[in-house]
Amino acid sequence: MRRTALSTVVLVLGALLGACDGGAVSFADARALADGATSATDGKAAKFVTEVTAGTMRSKSQGQARVAGTGTALAMTTDFLGEPLELRLVDKIVFAKVPEAAREDVPGGKPWVKVSPDGADPFSQVAGGSIDQLAKQNDPGRSLDQVRKAGTLVESGHTELDGVPSERYRLDVDMAALGGDLPAGLSAEAIGGLRGKLGKIPMEIWLDDAHRPLRIVLDLAPVLAASGVPDSAMARIVTRYSEWDTQADIQAPPPEEIGEIPAG
């Protein structure tokens, strides 16, 4: 009887452990993961919170994203450079709301301007590249495209994230294979200067049971290490997505509210 009872306990524990693992994950390689999650999010909207850490620097953004194959639309606020800044990404154009104290530099005092990494206006020249990448990095479609272009699946499994059953994927992303499509805060010039020193960087993606991203973590510590920053320095981008059934009507600012800062 003791042997029978012990066998029963072993079988029960085995069943429980098997239920926690949940068997094989949905995607066996990086491309399949990117394609599956892209298909699952097309036409959907979610709320997001992104935290960027680089050494002692901290930055936080939050907002809504409406994902589409033709381009994700975003409405967000961020504490860029320690000041609150409102951004919108619509039709692949980034709009920034000018702080009231600086609107005297915009003809007519209009509240919005277009921001471009190669713009000739002073605002774009000072912060255009960083703002453009910051807005676009919150786009899950862009992150998945980076996985598709340069990702290699390292590990996968079933887990819970904040009490939600999920699949967790660990990947390596080859920075050289990304070309100019780099994570927020990184320029092609900076990466070019690290050529030969920087190989792959880790990324983690958690998907819900409908294959939609719950969290994406990009570990940029190898970039700091290749730049000569002490190994103890931490650098990563963490984006959390929630409420994938959100209704998000994200539009560009009205044309009459968009100004243009004269080139300096």
Rank of each mutant, 00 (worst) to 15 (best):
M1G: 14
T4Y: 14
L6E: 09
S7M: 15
V10L: 15
V12I: 12
A15I: 11
L16P: 02
L17V: 12
G22C: 06
A28K: 12
D29I: 05
D29T: 04
A30G: 01
R31F: 06
L33P: 01
T38G: 13
T41S: 14
D42H: 11
G43E: 05
K44Q: 15
A45L: 08
F48Y: 14
T50D: 13
V52I: 11
R58M: 09
S59Y: 12
S59Q: 15
S59V: 11
G63T: 04
Q64D: 11
A75D: 15
P84V: 01
L85Q: 06
R88Q: 05
V90R: 07
D91T: 06
I93T: 15
I93R: 12
V94G: 09
K97W: 05
K97R: 12
V98D: 08
A102S: 11
V106S: 08
P111N: 01
S116C: 03
D118H: 09
D118C: 07
G129P: 10
A135N: 10
G141N: 06
D145C: 08
K149P: 01
G151T: 00
E155V: 07
G157W: 00
L161P: 03
G163K: 00
E167I: 00
Y169M: 10
Y169F: 14
R170Q: 12
M175A: 11
A184V: 08
A184Y: 10
G185H: 02
L186R: 05
A190G: 05
G192Y: 05
G192H: 05
R195L: 07
K197H: 07
G199Y: 03
I201T: 06
D209N: 08
H211Q: 10
P213H: 08
L214R: 03
R215C: 02
P222M: 03
V229N: 02
V229A: 15
D231G: 14
S232Q: 10
A233H: 09
M234A: 14
I237N: 04
S242G: 09
E243T: 11
D249C: 05
I250Y: 10
Q251K: 15
P255S: 11
I261L: 09
